[in-house]
Each structure stands twice: as structure tokens, then as C-alpha cells.
């Protein structure tokens, strides 16, 4: 069997490691608000106070909600519980589309309205060839 020294070392290392895990957990838990990349429309709706700093809101682009007037874009982000209207002028990423994920970065006017300065497309984890997608929609 292993000597006494090995056992003490093992005990010490495991103690150090478990403490480190605990510290990491506590730090991350207290930083929860900052670890998330974006808030959902429901999170925004539950805000006590409208923040004046820059904020990111994410969710789905609501079907049939995109309106383009001149160079101004208006659409609705939904998480299927709450919605938020977003206005934006500028170029959007290729994957920006109705019914797909989106993250809008900008300033809140009120709980239902965001003036975006940047639009990011959030794509999902599904990968397939176009033919397969068509066949799936055919069903």
C-alpha cells in the first residue's frame, strides 16, 4: 500500500481542489447577472427600473414582424411569453431572419422598446443539407 506521505499529499491536493471548485462556484454564482450574454424580453419586463446603460436582448425574431422603411429596420423579439420592439438602422448579419435567433444590443426606451445599435444573429445547433430541410418541411 501507499505510504503515509502519499496519503497526506492526496488528502491535501483533494482539499485544495475542492476548495477551488467551491470558490469558483461562489464567484460565478454571484456574477450570474454578468455571465449571461443577453437578457430575454421576459427579463426586461421584470426589470424594476429601466437601465440607461447599454443592454443586450435576445430571443426569436417574431414571424412576419420585420418592417423595412428606407434604411430603418423594425422587428419584434419574442421569447413566446413577452415581446419587445426593436428599431435599427444599418446592415444585419446574413443569418438574420424571421423565426430565427437574434441578439440586439442597444438602449432601452421602455420595457417594450429597444433602440438597437448592433444586431447579432444567433444560429441554432441544427446542421443539415438543403434537401433534407425541404423534405422535413414537406412533411
Amino acid at each position: 500500500m501507499y505510504g503515509k506521505k502519499v496519503k497526506i499529499r492526496a488528502f491535501f491536493i483533494i482539499l485544495v481542489f475542492t476548495s477551488a471548485i467551491l470558490i469558483t462556484f461562489l464567484v460565478i454564482n454571484s456574477l450570474k447577472e454578468n455571465v449571461v450574454f443577453f437578457k430575454s424580453p421576459t427579463d426586461i419586463n421584470n426589470l424594476n427600473q429601466i437601465e440607461s446603460k447599454k443592454i443586450r436582448v435576445g430571443g426569436m425574431v417574431k414571424k412576419n414582424s420585420i418592417e423595412i422603411e428606407n434604411k430603418n429596420l423594425k422587428f419584434v423579439i419574442t421569447d413566446f411569453k413577452n415581446e419587445i420592439i426593436v428599431t435599427f438602422s444599418g446592415a444585419v448579419p446574413n443569418l438574420f431572419e424571421e423565426g430565427k435567433g437574434v441578439v440586439a444590443e442597444g438602449y432601452l426606451e421602455d420595457r417594450k422598446y429597444l433602440k438597437a445599435e448592433k444586431i447579432l444573429a444567433k444560429h441554432d445547433e441544427n446542421y443539415m443539407p438543403p434537401e433534407v430541410k425541404e423534405a422535413m418541411q414537406g412533411n
Binding site: 449571461v36 443577453f38 430575454s40 441578439v103 441554432d124 445547433e125 441544427n126
Partner: peptide, 18 residues
């Protein structure tokens, strides 16, 4: 957490989406 990066496509317990 909510991330810009999409969730994993290859899963042991769920269906693989690639």
C-alpha cells in the same frame, strides 16, 4: 447561461442535430 454560441449539436443523451 444565455450565450451567443449555439448549444452543442452532438449529444449523448439527446438527439444529435448534425
Amino acid at each position: 447561461w444565455s450565450t451567443l454560441h449555439q448549444p452543442s449539436s452532438i449529444n449523448v443523451f439527446k438527439e444529435t442535430t448534425i
